[in-house]
Design a binder for these strands. Structure first.
Length: 700
DNA sequence: TCTGAGAAGATC
DNA sequence: ATCTTCTCAGAG
């Protein structure tokens, strides 16, 4: 008999570390999948290692009586050492149990399978792969697909990438500069060497088109996707193909960073700046950061691509003297085909108001010159995109008589008016009600929408541009499965002249005949309390601008219009010149003088409770604990504050920021703090509904 | 006294 | 997380 240390899915705050000891008749290597008894249940576990002594129960009666492993899933090769190390690192860095990290990285279906069911699935997978291989072979016979000639910049980047030991690189390439072609060539090199490539994208929506491009380029290869939009069975099949080394290319969202890849040879993180790479619940990991770590430790190149890199990455790719030097910086400033970047026009709303009267601006959502520009596109048969990052008809309704507003009864937020189904919906807790006929407070029937969302903008544009076909793409219009693809296809087919959309259309989609992109209400982010808001705005506008003039022939007359009350703002000035570098430099200078990331490292402790007092009391007590820990002098603990939206679904949320100048300092404190926090949450005086620690938070 | 919701405790 | 045991209020 030997003792196996096994990872099971237990959250960290159960004082066990989610590594439990079990007996097995023979030893199994780390990474082996097993089924073990846990309380009254039988659960999936992963062998983490062998325990030192054979069985302490024999030596001393105090030790727990060990239970036996029920089943070993021998049909599945064990996880690689590299994968296990990734799990261990992620668990310790983000302060979760390795069991939770490991098990939540598996497809849910896999966790429920016993050996017999697994064998059946594997057989079916084998058949499916054999059929796919036949198709692939036939495709390969038909000849190798044509590859576009490389631009000098692409060639140069690829030359650098081919040179030297594997390392992380930041590919800073303008929209339309052909970053995807670089990914394809790098993948080609790696595949030819018999390795697997992992490609991460920020959103599920972006997988189909990228998958199509890879499939077109590598018709003989097995390509699978990995994201939460797959059916459980698909997800298991795709995951298994990767784990068995049968899939050559794995394309997925942040969860895919944990894909088991025995022959991993390359990791690409496309749009690396995108906040979606940060997991916002459970183990709050950054898939981009884990990708970099994984690449380093598996000695595999990591390619981070973006036209507007995160300031963290930009800094890391900067000169070593300035604290960077961690990533290689690769630059592709020009668009493929020599197309110019669209001209950026900043519309000063104050001047428009002076010129046309405030009334005109109130009645019309768009400044008259912008409206003219839209008409111009319409006359030429070109398309326009009008961006508004707010869905629904109006963000709030109000009563003109008594001042009532459509507050959500459960959240500290307004309910949004959706005209299509005449509802008031809270975008935070989801509560949906019919719009009242009259003011619920005073009975006055005159309740009016305030502000505007995409629905209203769509309606107003249809009014202002008679004859134009106005379409709208946002989370509401694409709720049904497949409807986003359908609507995008209709835009591509030229069935829409003016497209209204939220940020979901600003990302990645290629609209060939689009020559105008307008952001009508961008200013809010300029004065947000979140220090990352300007970075996100710049990136959104840059990316949106990248939708315009993708067709080199039309690039010359492509424009980005931005309506603002603050035309002098440095962000817009940099945007006008397409000058990310200047923007980044000014932001970094600001961050440095304020001691904010990337010049410091942060963690955010969040607490949810029934009352704001309880949430704050927990955090206050937590702060006292932290201050008593060794090394606390090197860590800055901010006072607890209510969250930006302090109440959601009748739960009060508060948070407390902790900051240190070094990763190690911060980490040392967190590691000691966590057990103490567990103690706090079991004391009546500081009891909360939930608490969570967010390491490297991206929204504060 | 009985019952059931919710808290507390354990999981190798 | 999930399952069991405990505990205390309110019904019978």
């Amino acid at each position: 008999m030997c003792r196996l240390r096994v990872l099971v899915d237990l959250p960290r705050h159960s004082r066990l570390d989610a590594v439990l000891d079990y007996l097995a008749p023979e030893p199994w290597p780390a990474g082996t999948l097993v089924r073990v008894p846990l309380g009254k249940r039988e659960v999936c576990g992963i062998v983490w290692g062998m325990a030192e002594t054979p069985d302490p129960a024999e030596a001393d009666g105090e030790a727990p009586v060990l239970r036996s492993v029920v089943q070993v899933l021998t049909d599945l090769p064990p996880f690689t050492h590299g994968w296990l190390r990734l799990v261990a690192f992620a668990a310790s860095y983000y302060q979760r149990s390795p069991g939770e990290v490991a098990l939540s990285a598996l497809p849910p279906d896999l966790r429920d399978l016993d050996a017999v069911q697994l064998a059946r699935r594997l057989k079916r997978l084998d058949k499916a792969l054999a059929t796919a291989a036949k198709v692939a072979n036939a495709a390969a016979q038909a000849g190798t697909p044509e590859r576009p000639a490389l631009s000098p910049e692409q060639q140069q980047v690829l030359d650098v990438l081919a040179d030297g030991p594997p390392q992380p690189s930041l590919l800073f390439g303008a929209t339309g500069s052909g970053k995807t072609e670089v990914y394809l060539r790098e993948a080609e090199r790696v595949l030819a060497a018999g390795r697997q490539a992992l490609v991460l994208v920020p959103e599920i929506n972006l997988t189909p088109q990228l998958e199509a491009r890879f499939a077109e380029r590598f018709p003989a290869r097995c390509i699978v996707s990995l994201h939460s939009g797959l059916t459980p069975a698909q997800r298991l099949q795709h995951w298994l193909s990767a784990h068995l080394g049968r899939a050559d290319l794995v394309l997925g969202t942040r969860m895919a960073v944990f894909a088991s890849l025995p022959r991993l040879g390359l990791i690409v993180v496309d749009e690396e700046h995108d906040p979606s790479y940060k997991q916002q619940e459970g183990a709050r990991y950054s898939a981009r950061d884990l990708a970099v770590w994984r690449g380093r430790h598996e000695q595999v190149p990591v390619l981070l691509g973006s036209a507007t890199p995160s300031l963290e990455s930009w800094y890391n790719a900067g000169p070593a003297e300035a604290g960077g030097g961690r990533y290689r910086r690769l630059v592709m400033p020009s668009r493929i085909g020599g197309g110019a970047l669209p001209a950026v026009r900043v519309v000063d709303l104050a001047r428009i108001a002076a010129q046309f009267g405030k009334q005109a601006l109130r009645a019309h959502p768009l400044a008259p010159p912008l409206l003219d520009a839209l008409r111009e596109r319409l006359d030429r048969g070109e398309q326009s995109l009008v961006l508004l990052n707010r869905r629904g008809y109006a963000p709030v309704l109000h009563c003109t008589n008594c001042g009532w507003k459509s507050a959500c009864p459960h959240c500290s937020a307004w309910r949004v008016f959706h005209k299509l189904d005449r509802t008031l919906r809270c975008h935070h807790c989801g509560i949906t009600e019919r719009v009242p006929r009259a003011c619920p407070d005073c009975g006055d029937p005159d309740i009016q929408p305030m502000g505007r969302g995409t629905e209203r903008l769509e309606e107003q544009l249809a009014d202002l541009l008679p004859g134009a076909r106005v379409g709208r793409i946002d989370a509401d219009s694409t709720r049904a499965k497949g409807s986003l693809a359908e609507q995008l296809a209709s835009v591509h087919a030229g069935e829409v002249d003016v497209l209204v959309g939220t940020q979901m259309v600003a990302k990645g989609h290629d609209f060939r005949r689009m020559t105008l992109v307008a952001a009508v209400q961008a200013d809010a982010a300029l004065f947000s309390s979140d220090f990352r808001a300007p970075e996100r705005l710049f990136s959104l506008l840059m990316q949106a601008g990248g939708r315009a003039g993708r067709d080199a022939a039309l690039a010359g007359r492509s424009e980005v219009w931005i309506q603002t009350w603050h035309p002098e703002h440095a962000l817009y000035a940099a945007l006008r010149r397409h000058d990310y570098e200047a923007f980044a430099a000014s932001q970094l200078a600001e961050r440095e003088s304020a001691g904010m990331p990337p010049f410091s490292f942060q963690a955010l402790l969040r607490a949810d409770a029934r009352t704001p007092e309880a949430a704050l009391a927990f955090l206050d007590a937590a702060a006292l604990q932290a201050q008593a820990l060794p090394g606390a002098q090197e860590v800055l603990i901010y006072p607890p504050v209510p969250a930006p939206i302090h109440r959601i679904a009748d739960v009060e949320r508060a948070q407390m920021l902790v900051e240190a100048s070094g990763r190690v300092t911060l980490h040392r404190l967190l590691a000691q703090w966590l057990p103490a926090l567990q103690g706090l949450s079991s004391e009546p005086a500081t009891r909360v509904l939930r608490w969570a620690l967010d390491v490297d938070p991206i929204s504060i």
